[in-house]
C-alpha cells in the first residue's frame, strides 16, 4: 500500500474531499466511497462506457482514470442530472422512447449523450451513432437510444416533443 492523499473536486456541484491511494481508480472512489453508484463497472478495460462520467467538460471512462488525477476538477454523474425533482430532457427522452431495458448502461449512456448535445445541439442519426460508439448496450440495439437522444435534443432546443410510442396506438388501430 502506498501513502494516501486527500483529493478535492466538485461532484455534482458539491465540494468533495476524499482520501485515496494514488492507484485508486475513480470508478471505485465514486462507487465505494462516495455512494455514487449510478456509473457502473462493465468491463474495466475502457471498452463498455458504463462507467462514463463528465470531467471538466469531457466524457470520461472512470475505470481508466485515477482519482488523484481529478484534483480540482468538476465532475458530473447521472446523480446530478435531475434538478429539483425535474428530470433532464435526456432522462425524459430515454423513458419516452424506450431507450433502456436492464438499465445497466443507462447512466453512462445519458452522461455521454449530455456532453454530445453540449457540443452538437442538433445531431443527425449518423452523428449520434458515431459519437455514442463508446457506450455498449446489450439490450436495446441502439435504435431507441438514438431516438431518445433526438427527443432530448429537440426538447433542449425548445421544440415540442412527443413519444414515438403513443400509449393507445395499437388499441386504437
Amino acid at each position: 500500500m502506498s501513502k494516501k492523499t486527500i483529493v478535492n473536486f466538485k461532484l455534482n456541484g458539491a465540494s468533495t474531499d476524499v482520501m485515496v491511494e494514488p492507484r485508486e481508480l475513480l470508478i471505485h472512489t465514486l462507487r465505494d466511497k462516495l455512494s455514487i453508484t449510478g456509473p457502473h463497472i462493465g468491463c474495466e478495460t475502457s471498452h463498455c462506457g458504463a462507467c462514463t462520467v463528465d470531467i471538466d467538460g469531457a466524457s470520461v471512462k472512470s475505470c481508466t482514470v485515477l482519482t488523484v488525477q481529478c484534483e480540482g476538477s468538476e465532475l458530473l454523474t447521472i446523480e446530478g442530472f435531475a434538478k429539483g425533482g425535474v428530470l433532464h430532457p435526456l432522462q425524459e427522452g430515454f423513458t419516452q422512447e424506450h431507450g433502456l431495458q436492464c438499465g445497466f448502461c443507462t447512466p453512462g449512456m445519458i452522461t455521454r449523450a449530455y456532453r454530445l448535445l453540449q457540443e452538437n445541439p442538433s445531431p443527425t442519426e449518423e452523428d449520434i451513432r458515431f459519437w455514442m460508439a463508446g457506450n455498449l448496450c446489450r439490450c436495446t440495439g441502439y435504435q431507441n437510444i438514438v431516438k431518445a437522444i433526438q427527443y432530448a435534443a429537440a426538447k433542449m432546443r425548445g421544440e415540442t416533443v412527443t413519444t414515438s410510442h403513443p400509449l393507445m396506438a395499437e388499441l386504437s388501430a
Binding site: R31, I36, T37, G38, P39, H40, I41, T77, I78, E79, F81, A82, L87, Q91, F94, T95, Q96, H98, L100, G103, F104, T106, P107, I110, T163, H165, P166, L167, M168, A169, E170, L171
Partner: peptide, 23 residues
C-alpha cells in the same frame, strides 16, 4: 393489455438509482 405503457422501472435507472448486486 395492448398499451405502450411507459416503463415503471425507468425512473430509478435513468437517475442512477438502480440497485444491482455490486451496489
Amino acid at each position: 393489455i395492448g398499451c405502450s405503457r411507459k416503463r415503471r422501472e425507468d425512473p430509478r435507472f435513468i437517475q442512477g438509482k438502480g440497485n444491482y448486486v455490486d451496489d
